[in-house]
Nucleic acid binder design. Sequence first.
DNA 1: CATCGTTATTATCTTTTGTTAACGTCACCA
DNA 2: TGGTGACGTTAACAAAAGATAATAACGATG
Lengths: 195, 195
Amino acid sequence: MIDFEKIKAIYKLGKELSLQDIQLLIAAATPKSFAPTAYLIEEGATKREIHFIVKGLVRVFIVNDKGEEITSRVVTENHPATSSDIILFNRPSRFYIQAIEPTKTLTIDFDELQLIIEKHPKLMRLRRNILFDLLRESTTHIESFILLSPEERYLQFVENYADICSRIPDKYIANILGITPVSLSRIRKRIAGRK
Amino acid sequence: MIDFEKIKAIYKLGKELSLQDIQLLIAAATPKSFAPTAYLIEEGATKREIHFIVKGLVRVFIVNDKGEEITSRVVTENHPATSSDIILFNRPSRFYIQAIEPTKTLTIDFDELQLIIEKHPKLMRLRRNILFDLLRESTTHIESFILLSPEERYLQFVENYADICSRIPDKYIANILGITPVSLSRIRKRIAGRK
DNA sequence: CATCGTTATTATCTTTTGTTAACGTCACCA
DNA sequence: TGGTGACGTTAACAAAAGATAATAACGATG
């Protein structure tokens, strides 16, 4: 029995995959569902999972020393959500990943995925594409901190992520911009006053 | 004739490479030398090159609308220096890459490197490692902007990059931290006063 | 050894942000 | 339906950062 939803989701990740390759991935992936506020990953987790977001929206956040939740990024459809601590640094996650909207994922064990990729070189391009996507996003984010003022950062964010803006509270946006929600509110007022 | 310098440099990039694999890379790479202030890549460049820094130190900077040079990162020994614009976004580079110290590189055409990797799956792990390194660096950088104050960011930088700090001017550090050189000077004074 | 240019510091002033707290709005739920 | 909590805005104050300019320290170079 073929799950077309799954096929479609995986297909979007690597545009040049054969049906055979896709079936390999489907066999290894588990579809999961998360209600809003449910956690895909919690602090302290070590399970090396990658959650490909098929539908919905999640946020990555960390609890700082003052007990505040600081959102570092949001992950949308067709992108991988994972804890950098677990996957990149091999240490327990300091981050939570939480569903904002009802979310469906294809969840794959990272190490199992690596084995599949090693055995099927055609899939390597898929991995490359995913890593490139992540690098594109993070270099752009860093650039915004180095070159732009908070206000310019906000304007750029609204422009680049117009669809996401309306789906998440402002306080998450403030965190992602590296400022406080109060400051973001003032910036919005300033911008509105100039129009 | 075997170039041991080259072998050593490449070997550091991928710890599990066979001699055969290493020779493949050597054949494709050109050793280059740059005097301080020389450019490895200039604004407008489109040549898809990766410069592996074998020895020395370079900085990546961009000229903003006010004509100021803003340094976004420095690249040290055994790391790849390249323009994100060219490689990740397929557009002309807005960035310069400039040697700070006398620098020796192994320079490889990116697309040629991809072809070699596709033909020799064992090298794929090398690519993965390099991309992971870059992702580790950039996620840490973003985290510092979101979670830390400029002062904390500076303290963390000094701790993590003690060796580099003494090799580059403070104004580069200020840029990397997303603040002005004047502000960094004040932060240093504040810290010194508390000791 | 003197000089020039770059870099770092310091001062002054303005602008922005952080912090804390109060207030209105809204959604959700008992 | 009344209450509770989360969110965004606003206010007031303190702290920090940006902008600009002047000065001091330093290195390279002739």
